[in-house]
Simulated scan of single mutants.
Amino acid sequence: MKMIQEVNKNLELVQRFFACYGSGDLETMKREILAEDVTWIIPGHHPLAGVKKGANEIVDYFATIAKANFKAEVISLSASENHVVDVHRGWGEYGEHKVDMNWVLVYQIENGRIKQAQNFAADQHEADQFFWKVWGDELKPVPARLRSED
């Protein structure tokens, strides 16, 4: 019974994550959903790819992809005691540049918060091309941008 409760809590946590993402409520995401020392792994060879560390850096990443009107719609969620897997449609548009594909994320849940997320694109090549077209060389990696804003 305890495991079923944990699974349900984990599913609810990821559903809340998507609700915050969809509404742009990044402060609630940072305060209530992400672990302070969360790690988010973005695959690819584009300006936004790499390992994001800490809630602040991850929230900055989500604020950045908002430039491309990036949206997500959950297709399926499954969970275990410490993990959630989501399959979602993710799409974005910036001028004539568009991307629309399925993505899979594997979340590690610890103490009621997202501790780690690993992102997988259905077509990594297409994702790389889109992010390069939108951000090109103008965008420094998130850690460098955070340092330069101080």
Rank of each mutant, 00 (worst) to 15 (best):
residue 30 K to Y: 00
residue 51 V to R: 11
residue 93 E to H: 13
residue 20 C to T: 00
residue 95 G to W: 10
residue 40 W to M: 06
residue 66 A to H: 10
residue 40 W to Q: 00
residue 52 K to D: 02
residue 53 K to I: 00
residue 86 D to P: 06
residue 34 L to N: 00
residue 35 A to F: 07
residue 94 Y to R: 06
residue 106 V to E: 02
residue 64 T to P: 05
residue 63 A to V: 01
residue 97 H to F: 12
residue 68 A to E: 00
residue 64 T to A: 15
residue 77 L to E: 09
residue 74 V to F: 02
residue 22 G to N: 15
residue 58 I to S: 02
residue 46 H to P: 05
residue 69 N to P: 00
residue 59 V to W: 04
residue 50 G to E: 04
residue 55 A to P: 06
residue 109 I to M: 12
residue 86 D to F: 01
residue 42 I to G: 02
residue 102 N to Y: 13
residue 101 M to G: 11
residue 41 I to D: 12
residue 45 H to D: 15
residue 55 A to Q: 00
residue 89 R to Q: 09
residue 49 A to K: 01
residue 21 Y to G: 02
residue 67 K to H: 10
residue 28 T to A: 06
residue 18 F to W: 12
residue 59 V to R: 05
residue 28 T to C: 03
residue 79 A to C: 10
residue 38 V to K: 06
residue 83 H to F: 14
residue 82 N to Y: 15
residue 106 V to C: 05
residue 56 N to K: 06
residue 110 E to N: 12
residue 104 V to A: 15
residue 64 T to R: 11
residue 90 G to W: 02
residue 35 A to K: 04
residue 53 K to P: 03
residue 75 I to N: 14
residue 102 N to Q: 15
residue 98 K to S: 10
residue 76 S to K: 14
residue 98 K to N: 08
residue 44 G to N: 14
residue 73 E to K: 14
